[in-house]
Write a protein that binds this DNA or RNA. Structure first.
Lengths: 242, 242
DNA sequence: CTCTGTAAGATTGTATACATTTATTATGTC
DNA sequence: GACATAATAAATGTATACAATCTTACAGAG
């Protein structure tokens, strides 16, 4: 009986396309498709102020600015629509969502709920496999470096990376997906914040504290810390925003 | 100074494209774009068993089956990827996600968190504007009609409509968006369930009870009822699924 | 026989071009 | 002059065609 030769896909992708557990810190390059990159560019554009909430997005113009065709750009808009970043009606065009204070409250509320789930799962994962904490430490180092130079975009990215890593560690694919969408809202909200040097240090400190709580497995301290961490934006309601 | 005549877009779309509050039960036709319809068709295909979880999706074949070009189909796949229904890697294709028991637990867990937020907001909305309850009643009537004939797909749709309406009533756009994604997972999970006539009646009863709790504004009874309602799927773990 | 390199086939990624719908402007009528 | 109607222009929706990439199969060297 001749043993059938394994095909390339059977070797590289055992079952799902993205192997959940790699040989420790080996993560097969994520999706750099043009559509996804365009979506990220649009979100960063809003966060940096180049695009304004509520603004109408013309496909031809955006495609020209991003130096691509309308096809991948439209795919990007579909992604962003599914995530709630833009709104569209058929034959009527697409425009950026608005981010008023009520919306910011909603974002924080949803975020809190999702992260509590993720944190619980992650705490269990870190207990079983403490080596995963190294990924958090790496992100924290990058965050500190960015904070030292007051590079707010980089700080925000590291902030979101931190929480994304926790979602990843939790192994909860659903929460991770929902949080990917929510993270884009959070990034935009971060962009609207006016923050000081003291804020930068506080942010790093908060994340270090979260990391330590996760490492120690103190479940009871987690919820309280999370509340304070995430509702920070809400407490500032009405001030310190552009 | 000549008064400038208002443009049509300024009259029809004051600020956001989708007006949050209409003249009571007047909802400007939602997005029937071809891409969105294709996405819905694919989800229904999984729910009905025509497509199997984990299956690879060939663009040309799917486009032929759905009688459309690859362009809107790809847009549909991007939407579904953002919602976690399919997974893809560039130049490697797209495949349906798998829905094992761990995944079902994740779905229920996330759903519970989101719906608790929505229910709280909706309860407040119903208190201010009891007329909104009529929309729930309408859905419940449809659900009962479907339950009488044991039309499970229709029951599931009414089930999701019920909860979508609650998200809508809550006015929380973020939760609504996240739940739209999650609802597709739930629909697929419903499709995997094997249910009896007793189940049909129980489902209708549970929703009627939820509706009454919302109408009465009994916040304390809500969480408990929700836990029982949503974790129903989880309690059946390991049995009654295909 | 196993491994490596190469070539053919298949599939996805992108760009261009056309059809449909909408929004604006212009025109005519009351 | 105000309103309704028709024509023009703009933008989106869709289809077709081409390019880049990957998978697979095959041949040859060790």
């Amino acid at each position: 009986m001749p043993r059938r030769r394994l095909t390339a896909s059977e070797i590289l992708t055992p079952e799902p396309i993205s192997p959940m557990t790699a040989a420790e810190g080996l993560t097969l390059a994520p999706n750099p498709g043009l559509a996804e990159r365009a979506a990220e560019a649009i979100v960063l554009g809003v966060a940096s102020g180049a695009l304004q909430p509520g603004q109408r997005l013309l496909e031809v113009e955006l495609a020209r600015l991003l130096q691509m065709s309308r096809v991948p750009l439209r795919e990007a808009l579909k992604i962003l629509e599914a995530q709630g970043i833009v709104e569209s009606a058929p034959h009527r065009g697409t425009r950026l969502a608005t981010f008023d204070e009520a919306r910011i409250d909603e974002i924080c509320e949803a975020r809190l709920a999702l992260e509590k789930i993720a944190m619980r799962g992650a705490m269990e994962a870190y207990r079983r496999e403490p080596a995963l904490l190294l990924r958090l430490d790496k992100i924290l180092t990058a965050m500190e470096r960015a904070a030292a130079h007051m590079e707010w975009i980089e700080i925000s990215k590291a902030d979101l990376d931190f929480h994304r890593e926790i979602c990843r560690a939790s192994g909860n694919a659903i929460v991770q997906k929902l949080w990917d969408a929510l993270a884009r809202h959070v990034l935009i909200v971060f962009g609207k914040e006016i923050r000081s040097e003291r804020d930068a240090k506080a942010i790093v400190g908060q994340h270090r504290r979260l990391r330590d709580i996760l490492a120690a497995g103190k479940a009871e301290a987690l919820d309280e810390e999370l509340d304070q961490h995430i509702l920070r934006l809400q407490r500032r309601k009405g001030r310190n925003v552009r």
